[in-house]
Design a binder for these strands. Sequence first.
DNA 1: TAATCTACCAAACACTTGTTAGGGAAGGTG
DNA 2: CACCTTCCCTAACAAGTGTTTGGTAGATTA
Lengths: 232, 232
Amino acid sequence: MPKQKQSSDTSTSEKPTSTSEKPTGAGKAAGGRKKPPVTPSPERRGELLRIAADVFAEQGYNATTVRKIADAAGMLAGSLYYHFDSKESMLEEILRTFLTELWDGYDSVLSAPLGPRETLEALVTESFREIDRHRSAVAIYQKESKHLVTQTRFEYLVESQQRFEKAWLTTLERGVTDGVFRADLDIRLAYRFVRDTVWVAASWYRPGGGHSPDEIARQYLSMVLDGISVRT
Amino acid sequence: MPKQKQSSDTSTSEKPTSTSEKPTGAGKAAGGRKKPPVTPSPERRGELLRIAADVFAEQGYNATTVRKIADAAGMLAGSLYYHFDSKESMLEEILRTFLTELWDGYDSVLSAPLGPRETLEALVTESFREIDRHRSAVAIYQKESKHLVTQTRFEYLVESQQRFEKAWLTTLERGVTDGVFRADLDIRLAYRFVRDTVWVAASWYRPGGGHSPDEIARQYLSMVLDGISVRT
DNA sequence: TAATCTACCAAACACTTGTTAGGGAAGGTG
DNA sequence: CACCTTCCCTAACAAGTGTTTGGTAGATTA
């Protein structure tokens, strides 16, 4: 079955909106970025992004129409374009904001003089705190990142993934070398194991649900480090 | 455009005979189920469902157009409706087939006279085998089930989830009672922990990638049961 | 040979999608 | 007051969506 692709070209899809090209060229000389000639307040932007993130997380990005977002924000679809360039740019800003804050936390952990076990504990705890803070963004990231990484616009997702993997693998390898982590395990499997167990929690975690992020982190660490079976 | 021009005569102005007119007037008084009056072969259906499942898993259900599915199958969009009622019914059949086979395996495990630890091991192993067999369906299930359960058409997903949770919680509780699982852990957290560690593997697992399902199951069980840290 | 069945194509339909353009109300500032 | 800025609305557009309808080539059967 020869699959024949027509001109869909999933990467770098530039809209063929040929006709009217913004002749009001005054203002920002910031490269080719298309930007509205007005200045919406960052506070309102943030508010709308939080609303959009919730809808994206709940319904999925593609299933979310701009009219649904506008509905949740109490306005009409077209009004969103006073604040944002496009639906996709909302998604980008949501994920970028999340990843920026995530790496703020991770970097401070990784630069601290900790042993491998303490580093792992700190990373896991930090992750649950980020889930607590950016639960919608995490849910979106998990569902959509896989097919976003092919687009050049979301290249920073790939970069983040690579840094992420490197940080975790290094920590695990140090632990094996130091004799605090078991040497008989496939280290890449262990990495995916730890990574996934942490982040999928975003799919069921609800803030204010009895367990604090630190409490959940402690329990998860207990299971990951010592297992669920009784020691004999 | 996969247009294989046959381009034969295309006879002009061939009036349809007045004899054969609208065979759709047949019965189907009750029910209201819209069904094609033809009988497509189950083999072809299965083939197309496998193709559709792959596209759904890769691009997401909502981002997948029927034209993409048809493209992957080497036909045109409308032709799919000879085999299926709708795009949604394809999704339903994919998930239902998967869950049916999954519970075939689970039920035979659960009805066996095994201790809690052996039951857990068998369930995990069985799960990885199902991931190996229905990797696309599992990926779809994980991404889409959360917002499908609200539709009455997919009620069986809720039922399956409840059986699933009950089976796992019962096994874990038996283990605690029998003293083979730790009693100091939140059992619902442990359930989600085990559940997630298993099923998220579908997002990265590729058949024929060095590890067999049973091998992955063994490693995962080793981590879940005994942890990744060295026992002191 | 004619009738029938299977599996597809070709072309359209009604609707939804993201996005744009112009306008206007509210509130501050000179 | 006039003027500007901020923020949203009304109303549309073009492309893409799932789906329907009618037709037909090719194999199978009568």
